[in-house]
Every structure is written in C-alpha cells, then in structure tokens.
C-alpha cells in the first residue's frame, strides 16, 4: 500500500541549483533555483527548450548528480538523503534507455529484478505488458529504438512504482511508437500512478498531460493545469475568409479591432467573438466564406513564455519578457 506525502506532492523542489564547470573554468548554470511541484496522480508535463535543465533536474532527483544547493523530496522524503527508502516507488527512464548491450532483454530485466529482490517471474509479466515477450531472448543491442523504450518501461514496472519519470520518452520514435508511449503514460496515470514526462515536443505533452511545468534556463516560468495555462496564453485570434478583404479590413478596423492581412485571409486579434465579426461584415453586405477561431495551444504559450530565455527557445528575445506566472495562482 503506497503512502502519499502530507502535502499531496509526488515531487517537490525548492531553490534547486546545479552549475557545471566548463573546460575553460567558466561556470554554466544548468538549474538555477528551481521550485517545482508535481502533484500526486495524473500526467505532469515537464516542459522546456533543450538545455533548460529538465534532465539535470531529473538526474538530481534520482541521485545521479549532486545539487549545489536547494532541497528536493519524493513523496515527502528528502532526497538524496532518503532516496534508498523511496527509490522503490520511483521508476525512471532518463534520456535514452541504457542496458547491457550484449545481454538479452530478459537477462537485463532479470538482473534488475534480483537487485531489488523482485520475484523473477515478474520479468515475463512486465515483458508481456509491453509486448516484448516474443523478443525477450534477443540481445538488447539488436532492439529497435522503440523496443528499447518498451524494455525501459518494462524495467520501471518491475518496481510497480507510484511515480514514473520519463525523460524525452519519444525521442527517435516513429509516429506509431510515439502514440504507443503516449497511450502507456495515460494508461499508467489512469491506474493511479503519477507520471512525470519531460519533453520539448509540446504537442505530445498537450495530448496526454493533466498539468505542466514550464522551465527555461533552469527556472520555473509557469505551471498549472494545461487548460488554465492555455487560457492565460495569447488571446485567441479569428481567421476570416471574405471576398473583398481590403474593404472588410476597413470595416472591421472601424470597429476598433486589430486586423491584419494574412494572404487572402484577415486575422482578427484580441479575442473578438466570431459572431460579432459576422454581424459587422454582414451589415456592410460582406459575407464570410470562412471563419476559424485559432485556439491558443500549449505551443504558443510555451513559445511566448520562453521567448529569449536561453538556448533552444524558439522566439527572438524581447525587451519585456513576461513575468513569471503560475496558471493555478491566476485562475
């Protein structure tokens, strides 16, 4: 029977900091005072551009690298001090799965099972769960990337963990593999597990995550429920298709709305209700051919929030970066 931390958090970090020294002696901040909370249950997306500090954070949580300062806890247990007591509740795949290449999948899992004193019959159960039973005796180095990912998931399941950490789980996978991993994550969450998935591929996280945290340059810049976060992002835009776009732009502009041409379309910014646009155009004998509300998605929120915040960000730096905000706090 698993226990839940008193604060209802699977993961919590406060002021977590890690710097690396380069060969030239310069210190580079990988994680700079990160405050991260991952609630128990559901899928939590851990988002950030490449180099934002996601993998470093996960490695620190798992005791693989040492934090310079700050505190971390897993299910309320301080780590790394009490990691041995809590590690049995945590299954993790950090970046690419890494097993002994000349051993079979079954041999690799068997050794891990024996290391944690899990019954060896469980090996075939988890191999079956991930659909690898028929390839279990093949050498790991002969596995495809998708099979390696599935074997890594099987390894995490040996512990029957309460928290699963997947670091960039779909890297290098084909669309079918991505869909499979997504389904696995959702399935685990539906069984009551907590899943932390770190990724820079937002579409995949948006489809599966219940909550997200967005970091850039090792700092938290937003967190909360996906729906709330999208709601605080860029206001919706409506794309309008009309026979006389120049006259239509004048008509809509006269209403005080921000209108800009986009090819043969007009884009109306500012969250103007589509019905108002239709009404305004019809009043001038202009009839819409197409009217599409462009919903803000996680990607646009992400791009907006991470603009100019370090390597891998996808938007140019701006002078007035948005203040850090948390969707949960604002809603």
């Amino acid at each position: 029977m698993s226990t839940v931390s008193s604060d209802g958090l699977a993961i919590s970090t406060r002021g977590l900091r890690k710097t690396y020294r380069s060969r030239t002696g310069r210190r580079a901040v990988a994680v700079g005072g990160l405050d991260l909370d991952v609630p128990v249950g559901g899928v939590h997306g851990f988002l950030g551009p490449n180099g934002a500090g996601k993998t470093t954070t996960i490695r620190m949580l798992l005791g693989l690298i040492r934090a310079d300062s700050g505190t971390m806890s897993l299910f309320g247990q301080e780590v790394p001090q009490r990691l041995p007591e809590v590690i049995g509740r945590v299954g993790a795949i950090v970046e690419q799965p890494k097993f002994f290449p000349s051993f079979s999948g079954r041999k690799n899992l068997s050794m891990l099972a024996r290391a944690i004193d899990a019954p060896t019959r469980l090996v075939d159960v988890v191999l079956s769960d991930v659909g690898l039973l028929d390839r279990a005796d093949d050498r790991y180095k002969g596995y495809s990337l998708g099979m390696k990912q599935r074997l890594a998931i099987a390894a995490t399941l040996l512990k029957d963990p309460d928290l699963l950490i997947f670091d960039e789980p779909t890297n290098g996978l084909d669309p079918a593999g991505i869909r499979e991993i997504r389904g696995t994550m959702r399935g685990l969450a539906d069984r009551g597990k907590t899943v932390l998935v770190s990724s820079h591929i937002l579409a995949e996280v948006e489809q599966v995550a219940d909550t997200v945290s967005i970091i850039a340059r090792g700092e938290l810049i937003a967190s909360g429920r996906v729906a709330d976060l999208i709601g605080t992002g860029a206001a919706a835009t409506v794309r309008v298709g009309v026979a006389e776009p120049e006259r239509a732009q004048q008509v809509l502009g006269a209403q005080g709305w921000t209108v800009r041409p986009d090819g043969r379309y007009l884009l109306v910014d500012g969250g103007v209700p589509p019905a108002h646009i239709t009404q305004a155009l019809a009043a001038h004998q202009l009839f819409v051919e197409e009217l599409v509300p462009l919903r803000a998605d996680l990607e646009s929120v992400f791009l907006e929030l991470t603009a100019g915040r370090g390597p891998g960000t996808h938007a140019p730096p701006t002078g007035d970066a948005r203040p850090t905000h948390h969707a949960g706090e604002e809603s």
Partner: peptide, 15 residues
Amino acid sequence: EFSTGSIANWLTFAP
C-alpha cells in the same frame, strides 16, 4: 557500465 551508461539505470534501482 560507464561507457554504455547502464550504471545510471542501475543506480535508479540500487542507489
């Protein structure tokens, strides 16, 4: 174990 990276996986089972 270090060159293949499997030590990291191992340490998540035996920390």
